[in-house]
């Protein structure tokens, strides 16, 4: 198991790093009901930043 980031800042930066490194761009995301509203825009924004306008 690869463990990323022990400075505990910027989960999203680290997620991006993994996505880029592995060229993932079609995630299936499981999230809690409560965190959904907060998390979706962050991940979408990040996907956009990493992959530009489209794939």
């Amino acid at each position: 198991m690869e463990q990323i980031n022990y400075n505990y800042k910027g989960a999203i930066n680290n997620l991006s790093k993994i996505m880029q490194q592995e060229t993932f761009h079609k995630p299936l995301i499981f999230c809690g009901k409560k965190s959904f509203e907060n998390i979706k825009p962050i991940i979408e924004k990040e996907l956009k930043r990493v992959w530009g306008g489209g794939i």
Partner: peptide, 23 residues
């Protein structure tokens, strides 16, 4: 429900223990 699994290339689980366990 989550059909056509070939559509995805990675699973991300964001949340507490229950969410990660679910994934």
């Amino acid at each position: 429900i989550i059909q056509n699994r070939g559509k995805y290339d990675v699973i991300i689980a964001v949340g507490g223990g229950s969410v990660i366990d679910f994934a």
